[in-house]
């Protein structure tokens, strides 16, 4: 070992700013905050439902109707689609390759299957909620 090893200075807090791939990785990872926000929003919804009071529920529905809440959900939806849903589907064939005898299933089949399943699930939930 050399007496003066060269240690590349890498910042612990801003390392991902050096490279577009790293920045994308960080943008993808922070979607976990949105997952947390919507989990606790849903838990709040359950708490209101558990109170069994229709007035509480209707007051909650009215309280959500504001431009800032609309903006938050709209931005969250686009961010989540781009950096969690679409990225997760793109990575699926790499994380879970499907072996077919000697060969592997082509990546694009797995990705297309994910999009198809996603469409079915989304339509089902919309149907369940009476949107469609």
């Amino acid at each position: 070992m050399s007496r003066q090893p060269y240690i590349r200075p890498v910042s612990k807090t801003t390392w991902y700013m050096r490279n577009g791939r790293y920045r994308k990785y960080m943008l993808r990872e922070v979607t976990c905050l949105l997952v947390g926000v919507y989990c606790f929003l849903t838990i709040w919804v359950l708490a209101i439902l558990a109170s069994g009071s229709q007035e509480h529920w209707n007051a909650f529905l009215v309280s959500q109707q504001s431009p800032s809440v609309v903006a938050f959900h709209a931005i969250a939806l686009i961010y989540f689609l781009v950096y969690q849903t679409f990225d997760w589907f793109k990575l699926a064939p790499k994380a879970m390759p499907v072996q077919l005898g000697e060969k592997k299933m082509p990546d694009r089949f797995i990705v297309i299957a994910h999009y198809a399943a996603w469409a079915v699930i989304s339509l089902f939930v919309f149907w369940l909620a009476g949107v469609i």
């Binding site: 919507y38 709209a74 996603w118 939930v125 009476g130 949107v131």
Partner: peptide
């Protein structure tokens, strides 16, 4: 989350827009 959260967020968005779907009535 990849499969379910977009539609969940969309439902919150609909509520915020005042377009509460039938299935979300009490």
């Amino acid at each position: 989350t990849a499969f379910v959260f977009p539609v969940l967020i969309a439902l919150f968005l609909l509520v915020a827009l005042g377009k509460v779907p039938e299935g979300l009535q009490f």
